[in-house]
Simulated scan of single mutants.
Amino acid sequence: MTTPISFTPPPGARAHRLHTARGEFAVVDAPVAAGVEPRGVALLVPGFTGSKEDFHLLHEPLAARGYRTVAVDGRGQNESDGPAHDEAPYAQQELARDVLAQAAALDTPVHLVGHSLGGQIARAAVLLDHSPFVSFTLLSSGPGRISPAQQQRVRLLHEALAVLTMSEVWEAILAMGPPEEVGGPARGLGGLARLRQRWLNHKPAQLLATGRQLTVEPDRVDELAAVPLPFHVLSGARDDTWPVTVLDGMGVRLGAHRTVVPDAEHSPNMDQPLPTAHGLADFWDKVRQDRGDL
Rank of each mutant, 00 (worst) to 15 (best):
D285P: 01
V45M: 05
A149G: 14
V182W: 13
A172W: 00
G76E: 01
A277H: 06
P179E: 03
I5S: 07
R97L: 13
Q272S: 08
V99N: 03
A277G: 13
G50T: 03
P185K: 11
V216T: 15
S235E: 09
L138T: 03
L254M: 08
M250N: 03
G144M: 09
G144K: 08
P204R: 10
T108M: 07
R196V: 06
S135A: 10
Y67V: 08
E53Q: 13
H158M: 15
A21H: 02
P204L: 14
R187S: 12
P178S: 15
D29P: 07
L208V: 14
S167W: 05
Y90W: 11
D222V: 00
L100N: 08
A160S: 13
T20G: 12
E79Y: 11
R75G: 11
A71K: 01
V110A: 06
D73A: 07
G82L: 13
R97K: 14
P83R: 11
P9G: 02
M270L: 15
G76N: 09
R75N: 12
G118Q: 04
K203I: 08
D263I: 02
Q197M: 09
V72T: 12
L280I: 14
L274E: 14
A30K: 04
P218N: 01
P243L: 00
H278F: 12
V113T: 03
G190E: 00
D107E: 03
L100S: 01
A256C: 08
R155G: 08
G211C: 10
F25D: 03
V169E: 03
A13E: 00
L274M: 05
G35H: 09
D219A: 11
V45K: 04
A175Y: 07
L62Y: 01
L112T: 01
G251S: 04
A125Q: 00
P148V: 13
G74H: 11
H115G: 07
G144W: 02
L274S: 10
T165G: 11
A34W: 00
F48G: 00
W199T: 10
L117N: 02
G188Y: 01
D271I: 01
A193P: 03
V99M: 01
T20P: 10
P185F: 09
Q77K: 12
G12S: 00
R155Y: 13
V134K: 05
R153W: 03
S80A: 01
P243A: 09
P4V: 10
G12F: 01
R75H: 13
R65G: 10
H85T: 15
L156C: 12
A26L: 02
E24V: 09
G251A: 14
W284R: 02
T245I: 14
G279M: 09
A277E: 00
A21D: 15
T20H: 05
H115E: 12
A205E: 11
A34L: 12
A104Y: 06
V246Y: 10
Q120E: 07
R187Y: 04
A13P: 04
A175L: 07
A64P: 03
A104L: 07
A149L: 15
L100W: 01
T241F: 13
A281G: 13
A96T: 05
V113K: 08
L208Y: 08
V72F: 07
G66Q: 06
E53L: 02
T8W: 03
T8H: 14
V113A: 02
T259I: 04
D293A: 14
S141N: 11
P273S: 08
